[in-house]
Amino acid sequence: MTPIIETKNLYKIYTDQASEVRAVDDVSLRIAEGEFTAIVGPSGSGKTTLLNLIGGLDSPTSGSLYAGGKDISGLSEKEIIHFRLHHIGFVFQAYNLIPVLTAKENVSFVMELQGRKKEEIKRRAEELLQAVGLGDRMDSRPAKLSGGQQQRVAVARALASRPQFVLADEPTANLDSQSAENLLDIMEQLNRQEGITFIFSTHDPRIMAKAKRMITLEDGKIKSDVLK
């Protein structure tokens, strides 16, 4: 099976005058379609950096990076933004939503950026918000939603563009454990039922436990890679 993400000897090295930090140090990995993968490791181990590289938010110092069978390390900024819009869904730790738009408008927004049809946008936004359990809060603005509800809107938004995979950097970090588990359950369900590929990072052992594959980083290197 062709991997949806493949990195080969990926490096991201930050250099100061004095020191150099190997945030991502010779990482080669393949992630197949439909995986539910957690990237774990201590603080500073390079989780965010790796996810940002895969998501095209940052560019590697060296190494190659294929996403959806395409070498994205050589794309121009314009091309990479276009690639993100059509192929990647993002869930960040915070500041995911546009505060002046309602939950439904936030989910619709990416689809509007993609230029999809009005009826399709409306139908899909409602469907997704139902799926994350927010069918009754579609017209609320983010400020009126709890942290957990906001992250669920973010998950719906990430899926709205029909991406090839979803990247989530510590999506539960700002949530209480109840909401965190709830969010993961929703993600897991979407993965199981719709085959959506999720790659997320976390500190939380209980969240890690829900992953089907767990990649552990340490000092930018892959320390272990277990399939459950």
Partner: peptide, 16 residues
């Protein structure tokens, strides 16, 4: 700042 960064991250083109 963060919001504009997020917009660009989720695929809003610079021109937009």
């Amino acid at each position: 700042t963060r919001e504009l960064g997020m917009l660009s991250a989720i695929g809003m083109a610079k021109g937009r």
